[in-house]
């Protein structure tokens, strides 16, 4: 009985941590998954777009805190930072599409992949040149209040991270299902070449897709900065690869799948670390994913698509 009263809070505690970690992966991997689904392209710069978004969020947050910290309540500053960062970061997405990928639209996919990696390196070294190699610390956007319910510790920030992530994913899902732009995106993931015949401009849809992915990645960056408040120019690399894995695991172009896989990855990582030494965390987490992909190579919700993707 005593073992149980200790065991349940322990599980719940890890569950909350896993939800938080999964939220980052989910929100970032959705951006990966959308670009892959809509444009048949892996945007390998996505992790570094996340990094750049975090830096923008850092700048906006610092600015707002110095200007308004006295008069405005924490949550207002938080929301304002998120909204403005999202807007600014989405232009990074547009830039990456227009300058990086658009000229390569009819080139082999490998060229686009190399370009993505190169854009990532440019972003990393750009920040390195601009701000130096020193690590920055993300300021807390609101006062953290800790709660303890039955031995489970959590903070208001943690709850906000989880809720905001879920809200963003729900909003995106609604956008994809209900608006004509969402319809066009779904249609592109089915038959890319037939979409312009509907009067849909690829030169509008492609930057839009990138913009949404980048905006989400930047929000994830702010949330990440609240949980792990250290910024460095290479912070996006590992997270980017993890989000990539989650996008693959979720299935091509599936928002639902990417979100689910992101959370799953968070859960596996947290729970593996509670049982095994944390150095084995990634090894075990990716072994599990490899196993899943062996039996479901298309991922969770990977849909069939027109076999005729080119004329």
């Amino acid at each position: 009985m005593e073992a149980l009263t200790e065991f349940i809070p322990y599980i719940l505690q890890n569950l909350i941590n896993a939800l938080q970690r999964g939220s980052f992966y989910a929100v970032i991997s959705i951006g990966y998954s959308m670009v892959y689904g809509v444009l048949m392209l892996f945007n390998f710069a996505h992790g570094d777009i996340f990094m750049l978004g975090t830096y923008i969020g850092f700048g906006i947050a610092t600015l707002f805190l110095t200007l308004f910290a006295g008069f405005l309540p924490g949550p207002v500053i938080f929301i304002a930072t998120v909204v403005i960062t999202m807007f600014l970061a989405s232009w990074i997405g547009v830039f990456v599409e227009v300058a990086g990928y658009r000229p390569l639209r009819s080139a082999p996919r490998a060229s686009a992949a190399i370009t993505g990696l190169m854009i990532g390196i440019i972003f990393e070294t750009g920040i390195l040149i601009l701000l130096g190699a020193k690590r920055l610390s993300f300021p807390p956007l609101m006062e953290s209040i800790a709660y303890n319910i039955g031995g489970v510790y959590f903070t208001n920030v943690k709850v906000l991270i989880i809720i905001l992530s879920l809200f963003l994913m729900l909003a995106l899902h609604t956008f994809i299902q209900r608006t004509k732009w969402g319809m066009a995106m779904r249609a592109m993931s089915y038959d890319f070449l037939a979409v312009p015949l509907m009067g849909v401009s690829i030169n509008v849809m492609a930057p839009l897709t990138f913009a949404i992915g980048a905006g989400l990645a930047a929000v994830a960056g702010i949330l990440y900065g609240q949980a792990y408040p250290i910024l460095d120019p290479y912070m996006g690399v590992l997270i980017g690869w993890k989000a990539f894995v989650a996008a693959i695991l979720g299935g091509r172009g599936s928002i639902k799948g990417a979100a689910l896989a992101g959370y799953l990855l968070g859960f596996i990582e947290i729970f593996v670390a509670t049982i095994f030494p944390s150095t084995l965390r990634d090894l075990i987490a990716y072994s599990i994913i490899l196993l899943i992909l062996t039996y479901r190579p298309r991922g969770f919700f990977g849909m069939e698509h027109s076999t005729k993707l080119r004329l």
């Binding site: 319809m183 249609a187 089915y190 015949l197 849909v200 849909m303």
Partner: peptide, 27 residues
């Protein structure tokens, strides 16, 4: 100028109505 392509190329993952709505994207 509309173009009804060879092999129909309808969007199988969209409903019939959605296919028709999408066709009016720029209207």
């Amino acid at each position: 100028i509309s173009h009804v392509p060879e092999g129909r190329r309808i969007f199988g993952n969209l409903t019939v109505t959605e296919n028709l709505i999408l066709a009016c994207f720029a209207r």
